[in-house]
Write a protein that binds this DNA or RNA. Structure first.
Length: 509
RNA sequence: GGCCCGUUCGUCUAGGGGUCUAGGACAUCUCCCUUUCACGGAGGAAACACGGGUUCGAUUCCCGUACGGGCUACCA
């Protein structure tokens, strides 16, 4: 049994979209589940679309997600180089083989020639396709004599090399997520294998590399499904039919609303990231937000992505990368496209935050509070307790300081709505008495505070329910927040008494 | 247009001939807990696109239709 090897092969044309990250994740999980290797290969055969910084961005993104390749440009490996632009000679060898066997041919049609063909076809309501039905009428080594071909080649004129697809065949293969898929060869065109600049196209390069790098399973997006039969034909032409990898074509990620696949525009329009990391366009300087910068944990991010199109068949929803590696199976991948739901993404982050150790949150909270300049003399124990109170009520770490502002700063405004609705002037004397009772209380713990409050209320013939909300507003300024009595304990007797005192002054009679 | 792929609650999905009165999660609504607020818990509303077959029986299999998506570049 051959060792399982999968790869993720992005092209460095910009930031990695979350659909791409998911593809990488599935390819990684598939390999790891089988105890195999995961390779990162950079497909940079198109010089025109190369974007500086994109390759580094891709590597950093995967790294942030914890998707660590066994072999890559940075990690090296037995099949280096892992950048296609550095593997030109290898492709040339394969091209020559195809040419020699008559499976590929030279084509001299200029881009303008082809454009004319397309227009003409369009006029007749057809779509031009460079295939067996027209190739003998075009300028190529099949329609010309060998002498002519040699002469043009020698003259240095631009040419491309195309695969010669024979009509009348049915190409079928067994896709791991879709099952048996088949195509008539007439529906295929003579795809360009080598461009006029001497670089191979994706179709040739990826296939050669997959063979050379001993890739066993090709896991990629659904957009590649229509070109897969051409790839199979190339394998066959190369006498590599017995080494064709298994294919798995993943469904696409769709927009949260409307139709079509998820794009950068959707993120901008609806206010959520579509990229793992923030990206600054080197040309326009435009900045696109990233999940990392939006406060998402990488664990939550990949957890969410993993469930977008895959499901283990149980009711568990929170998984570590490790668990995913153990449970992942390509048979459980859905066939239909999945809409990305930004709301559920937030929920995943909250779930992970609720599971974080409190001291991690305490450290984050401390940093935020210090940055805001709210208080710098709080003890670490204070931050720990504050973080513990805040933990269940936030979705992101960065929300903590603002959500618990009253734990650090005396409120200057009290919630008017609650006051208007619940305040009655007779309560003033109650709070005055309560304040004194609290001031005299030796043991200022949540339970004893609660007892004091209830006893005092009882003495004044008040129901605790009447004054609880008002007490919260007096102490925190807000109508909602962390557990009231633990909050008072944390603030301490002196602070609480002062806040009630100054709060009462702010309440209009 | 052509080729290919898909279609279970608003969204992510489980289930794949009878156990489906179609399960879970997000969002939404109600209630409970907390005489506060969240977390949490309980419950409600909410789906097998449609039409034909096959079958004793179809959400599940087959065929059509509709709808959605992808591809149709010397881009990947």
């Amino acid at each position: 049994m051959k060792k399982v090897r999968t790869r993720f092969a992005p092209s460095p044309t910009g930031p990695l979209h979350i659909g791409g990250v998911r593809t990488a994740l599935y390819a990684y999980l598939f390999a790891k589940h089988a105890g195999g290797d995961f390779i990162l290969r950079i497909e940079d055969t198109d010089r025109n679309r190369f974007v500086p910084g994109a390759e580094e961005y891709i590597i950093e993104s995967l790294n942030w997600c914890g998707i660590i390749p066994d072999e890559s440009v940075t990690a090296g490996g037995p099949f280096k180089p892992y950048r296609q632009s550095e593997r030109k000679e290898i492709y040339d060898k394969y091209i020559k083989q195809l040419l020699n066997k008559g499976h590929a041919y030279y084509a001299f049609d200029s881009p303008t020639d082809l454009e004319i063909q397309r227009r003409a076809a369009e006029k007749e309501g057809r779509v031009f396709s460079y295939d067996a039905s027209v190739r003998m009428k075009l300028k190529n080594s099949l329609s010309m004599t060998d002498e002519e071909t040699s002469r043009i080649l020698a003259s240095g004129e631009d040419y491309v090399i195309r695969i010669k697809v024979m009509p009348g065949e049915t190409i079928s293969f067994d896709d791991m997520v879709r099952g048996e898929v088949s195509f008539p060869s007439e529906s295929l065109d003579d795809k360009v294998l080598m461009k006029s600049d001497g670089m191979p196209t994706y179709h040739l390069a990826h296939l050669v590399d997959d063979i050379e790098m001993q890739v066993t399973h090709v896991i990629r997006g659904e957009e590649w499904l229509p070109s897969t039969p051409t790839h199979i034909l190339i394998y066959q032409a190369l006498d590599l039919a017995d080494r064709i990898p298994r294919f798995a074509h993943l469904p696409l990620l769709l927009k949260p609303e409307g139709s079509g696949k998820l794009s950068k525009r959707d993120g901008d329009r609806l206010g959520f990231p579509v990229f793992p990391l923030q990206w600054k366009d080197p040309v326009t300087g435009e900045i696109s937000m990233g999940f990392r910068e939006k406060g998402y944990y990488p664990e939550a991010f990949i957890n969410m992505l993993a469930l977008l199109g895959w499901n283990p068949g149980t009711e568990q929803e929170i998984f570590t990368l490790n668990e995913l590696e153990q449970l992942f199976s390509i048979q459980q991948v859905n066939k239909a496209g999945a809409r990305f739901d930004p709301e559920k993404a937030k929920w995943f982050n909250a779930q992970w935050l609720h599971r974080k150790p409190v001291n991690q949150l305490a450290a984050a909270l401390k940093k935020q509070v210090l940055e805001l300049g709210w208080h710098n003399n709080r003890t670490d124990s204070y931050f720990y307790k504050a973080a513990a109170l805040l933990q269940p009520r936030v979705h992101f770490e960065y929300e903590m300081a603002q959500a618990g502002k009253y734990l650090f700063v005396t409120p200057d405004l009290l919630d008017e709505k609650v006051l208007a609705k619940k305040w009655k002037e007779p309560y003033r004397s109650f709070f005055t008495i309560l304040k004194d009772n609290l001031a005299n209380q030796q043991d200022f713990r949540a339970e004893t505070i609660e007892l004091t409050v209830k006893k005092t209320a009882e003495h004044q013939q008040l129901k605790p329910g009447e004054i609880m909300q008002l007490m919260r507003v007096l102490v925190s300024g807000q109508s909602s927040g962390v557990d009231l009595f633990p909050m008072m304990e944390l603030l301490g007797s002196h602070e609480v008494v002062q806040r009630i005192e100054s709060g009462l002054l702010k309440v209009k009679g």
